[in-house]
Design a protein around this nucleic acid. Structure first.
Lengths: 363, 363
DNA sequence: TTGTATGCGTTATCAA
DNA sequence: TTGATAACGCATACAA
């Protein structure tokens, strides 16, 4: 083998710096030498489809285990132009819904031999754009995302043209981007939730939302409005309470709203706002459910343990994650389907508990 | 340029299959052609240290943006022998503690330009071993882990010899593996928690644990035992309730224990068991805190909303994650420190609420 | 300051 | 069934 003098110098330096694999690091070539085989044969032992005799394969795998050899992931990826990795982008992590969804994604990915990268936007649109852009460098084969920037320009997703990575939305989606998605029947759930409050005797129902302009906020709001209409309850714009992402701000906003608007029912679009409502009621001495009934979208598993236990619209979070992952793998498996538009709609369940009870709470 | 006839055939086939970059996919060579520059110059524009004129750099970056070019991650990694990726291995995801910790890790990683891979073991030791082994193929530069297999053999971690990836433990650790770790003062917290129950009048305090043999279980148990001793309360072996990972099993175990042992205080080592205790008490008509006081390790943010509000030992989960990540980056940054043994101990806080109140609960 | 040449570790192709 | 080889896309040493 000829090594140019430049390169040998480069080698020397980098060996010193520890940048380059030294004797203690194993690779396909060394394994081949150790076994007196060619690298191609080694490689074949690790891919199932290729022709190779059973005995050599065993010999190779045994030696590989002994020397702790595994095919270098980056070299394989470079060669094969795929990474066996999917990226998951979520607005937040410390949220029962998203952690359950990720768990579902993780499980399906693992079964398919894929790894998952996690990105948290903290509801920051700029981060989202940045993540997506950087993911188009081969790091991931596909993306599963719950979006953060409904109010912003989604067109950045179209700028990749044919090179755009397969993308699946779940829960929070951009309606104007045509890509597979997994959502729940939010309109219907909201309608039923509102109807439930009305049936429990509420007439002034406040709707708490984090961002009215988010598609998920809009869909959920529509169900609320339509239910009011069905029961001929006039819709009051100011009963839509637009909250923020800040705990402190929400506390003030909600207390003000409860104080000034005196609703007898509250429907919150995310669980965080239900918690904030509870805290506000504790502070203000408002009794749930006597003075105020509360229902919320929530995947909280301990909703029955709250004081009072919280009536929830529970989304099948884990299943949503699983379905999203399956959808992505379907695209990844056969290129034909790449542009197939696919929408999976799962059903949420309303679970009635004491926070919307007509009777005084009892436990 | 000479292309062997074999290879040209191979090219043809793979182009058809779409396996190989075609016109729509950009790489360093095409960008170079488009700009009439060499690939090295392009490369230099993307690395900060190299010599390159300001104007060409700008020209290149502009064109790159236009053509949506980014250096291929896998090629760079192969060349540089590092991945700018860290792996995080946790026992479970749907747990406030771990999702908060991961959030902390994610933030620090992002700031350092690193990406994170998530692996969930579901408390399965075999999965853990498998993950770790596969990670040693270059996919990650380092690992942050909360362990699952205390009862098993940890020696697999030593089998990698000098090739072992930098590893940082957090919260659940293997004491016999010498590697940096971030933990909380569990012994002390347990001691204080038990003492708190005693001060509130408890004399028969049950300790609920998921796995006695886990180091974290042992440490926490020791604090409990020593606190009993301080107050001359005899330690009863059967008040240590060994629970499982199954919700249904725990329900039975706990109900049995409450029924037969009639404790007046319960100290649970993980929040899940506190929830199970609440459910059991609801079912059995046991009043918390009158009949039974409950304290638990928990990072639950809505502990004040429980019925009754739960007294917790709260770990600084996010900070633990951040510290673990920082520790890992310190190792990654300077190779010298590679074997430095480092232990960061953070303080948990006991937050007293109604579940351990002497007075009947009030809200 | 830029270009040329080379190899990172792997795998597919073809030849033997 | 195995071996030789070229290339995946990039980054660096050195020459120009």
């Amino acid at each position: 083998m000829f090594i140019s003098k430049y390169y040998s110098l480069y080698l020397q330096r980098n060996l010193k710096k520890g940048l380059i694999a030294t004797m203690d690091s194993i690779n396909i070539k060394k394994l081949a030498e150790a076994l007196n085989l060619s690298t191609s044969t080694i490689s074949r032992a690790f891919r199932d489809n290729s022709d190779i005799s059973g005995t050599t394969k065993e010999r190779i795998l045994a030696k590989a285990k002994e020397l702790n050899y595994q095919p270098n992931h980056y070299a394989s990826n470079l060669r094969e132009q795929k990474s066996k990795t999917i990226a998951v982008i979520v607005p937040e992590l410390a949220n029962n819904y998203f952690s359950q969804a990720i768990h579902g994604i993780e499980r399906v990915a693992r079964e398919n031999g894929y790894h998952i990268l996690i990105y948290v936007t903290d509801d920051d649109y700029k981060k989202e754009v940045n993540f997506i852009r950087h993911l188009h460098n081969g790091r991931a084969d596909g993306i599963i995302m719950s979006v953060s920037g409904e109010a912003n320009d989604h067109n950045y997703l179209n700028k990749f043209g044919t090179k755009r990575l397969p993308l699946v939305f779940f829960d929070r989606i951009y309606e104007d981007i045509e890509t597979p998605r997994v959502i729940t029947n939010d309109y219907n759930s909201s309608f039923l939730a509102t109807e439930h409050l009305i049936e429990q005797g509420c007439r002034r129902i406040a709707y708490l939302v984090v961002n009215k302009s988010l598609s998920i906020g809009k869909t959920r709001m529509k169900g609320y409005i339509d239910a009011l209409e069905k029961y001929h309850i006039p819709f009051e714009e100011n009963l839509i309470i637009d909250c923020s992402n800040s705990y402190e701000e929400n506390s003030i906003i909600i207390k003000d709203a409860l104080h000034q608007l005196k609703p007898d029912g509250v429907f919150t679009s995310v669980e965080r706002l239900a918690f904030a409502t509870y805290y506000a009621c504790y502070d203000l001495g408002i009794n749930i459910p006597q003075d105020l009934k509360v229902i919320s979208f929530s995947s909280l598993e301990i909703a029955p343990l709250l004081n009072p236990s919280l009536t929830t619209i529970t989304q099948p979070a884990t299943e949503i994650g699983e379905q999203a992952a399956k959808l992505l793998f379907k695209i990844l498996d056969d290129n034909e389907d790449k542009n197939l538009f696919n929408e999976v709609i799962l059903q949420s369940k309303i679970i009635v508990r004491n926070s919307t009870s007509k009777e005084p709470k009892n436990h």
